[in-house]
Amino acid sequence: MDALWGLLPNILAAGVAAGTPVLLAALGEIITERSGVLNIGLEGIMIMGCVSAVMVTLDLHSPLAGLAAAMAVGGIMGLLHAAFTITLKGNQIVSGLALVLLGSGLSTMLGKGVLGQPVFDLFYPEALPWLADLPYVGGIFFKHDPLTYGGILLAPLVWFFLQHTRPGLLVRAAGESPETADSLGAPVALVRYGAVIAGGALAGAGGAFLPLVQTPSWVEGMTSGSGWIALAVVIFARWDPGKALLGAWLYGAVQALGFRLQAVGVPIPSQFLNMLPYLAPIAVLVITASRSRGQAIAPRALGLPYERESR
């Protein structure tokens, strides 16, 4: 146990990094869902982000290019989801599942050529001057890779966007009451398109983190459920970017704890430790749900296509 206490800062630091892919995807999903569209295809978008990041980085030797490619591919998948659910008014859950199928299949096919190839051009951790020297906190928060910093910065930015900018206000209005937004002349469909594409791009970025920071190569199915966990984080966070940060770190820490325990040789089968990151979100949802029952917090028009002449 003492050894574990000694490891705690280490685990927390690893958790902050490990939570990044989930954080990025969850922030994107918050924007998407706040506009009234549910995209459960995150898992498929993230895996496409992984494979495109690897392919482009191997080709151009620049992780930034890889990240850009992942975001572009994520945005395109978001566009696809938007077209199917907003314009064609298809079922959002089925379309999301189709994205998962498509992403899994395409990534496997596209990744055949780069399977197992090591990626050398990565985002490396950089200690932030001065901040990294802070006792305790410095080690946990300020010795990370640029993507992790980006995720941490993005949370308040998304919050500011939603609360203090007009596009953000429109996004929220489209998710709360599209007919109101429409009656004021706000382009509901356009706003939703934008939100879903942005959400897809962020999920793509989350996917890019995995090969460009964590496991420097392409492995089939390497997201291993991160997209689904991001969905759980959004619910836990009650569509609030700040709480999403908390949720993602919690998830990251649990994952890191599992790895560390395995590394120090705790006599628990690895499978049980690997279960933790999947059980933890359920446990957290149970605990938080029982405390705040009956509150209407989800965007009111979430999951509903908007049609002007529907009455």
Partner: peptide
């Protein structure tokens, strides 16, 4: 037009509801 079912967003404040009708990029509360 003022509709029978109000076109207001219940979870928004009065000011936010009114701001929806205006333009501009940033909003100072």
């Amino acid at each position: 037009m003022v509709h029978q079912h109000f076109r207001l967003i219940p979870s928004f404040t009065v000011a936010e509801n009114l701001a929806l009708a205006k333009s501009g990029l940033l909003i100072s509360r």
